[in-house]
Nucleic acid binder design. Sequence first.
DNA 1: TTCCATGCAAATCGTTTGCATAAAC
DNA 2: GTTTATGCAAACGATTTGCATGGAA
Lengths: 148, 148
Amino acid sequence: MLYDITKLGIIPNLGRGFMSNYSKQRECIINIIRDLRTHPTAEEIYMKVKQVDEKISRSTVYRNINILVENGDVNKISMPVGPDRYDYNHEMHNHIICEKCGKVYDFYYDIPKSLRKEIENQLLGKISLGESIEIKGICYECKSKKEK
Amino acid sequence: MLYDITKLGIIPNLGRGFMSNYSKQRECIINIIRDLRTHPTAEEIYMKVKQVDEKISRSTVYRNINILVENGDVNKISMPVGPDRYDYNHEMHNHIICEKCGKVYDFYYDIPKSLRKEIENQLLGKISLGESIEIKGICYECKSKKEK
DNA sequence: TTCCATGCAAATCGTTTGCATAAAC
DNA sequence: GTTTATGCAAACGATTTGCATGGAA
């Protein structure tokens, strides 16, 4: 083992069969996703990884992204348009997504207790609110295009 | 013209080239989407329409859904898993979506001024919040599955 | 008689899967 | 030596598109 993957804050889930084996590809993918702050698509991650490991395959990238999402280390953002985007779980933050072009902006806001309570009341025993929220909006670029 | 499509509350955008021509398929699709309150997928809408018009094609359904979304009459809900879902814009409501299974629940809540203001401040001149919000959560069914 | 919508099939996009090989343990 | 990850190519699901045809204005 060249590097200890746990140093990256990724806890191998040996019991589950996930992340149990080191590979230089896996380490590279994790490093790159962790360092990108651009809400990249799988393709963008793949391209970035390719700059380091010329021979890596798309499916290896997809497979590892899915494992990271499954483990909760990476957040998957479903897009209203185009391919899904991914975001390493650093400090708590929320997203607002343009429903026309899919551009993602971060914002910081503690979900008010009143909202949590309201949702809990309305959806008693059905669903609970996640830690971070994603809201749809429309960016000014798309808005001005629309008004033409 | 057999029926006046404007009676459905759909204003034909003649100037834009959208919804300018009546067709029985189009009317049927609009009626069905408006009456479904189940956040159906395109395929589910297609199946429902097919019960009325046996010979309708999938692409006609997709094309008309897109026009309705474009016009703002129908809301497209991007799913974390599986195909997108659609919702006719009746009275104002918000969605909470299970990020594991994609199930959609409605809830009613006026977005607090503090949240609007906060987002406006943080994203000055970039993006503005839409009228309804979509939040991710995890439903109790998926949560209990996960805990096993 | 012009324009627009339809139906069909093929194409496309993003992603997953089966399988043989290679690397990790 | 057994398990798990990789690379490749093929398969897949959801959606869009090109084109010939038919209906609406």
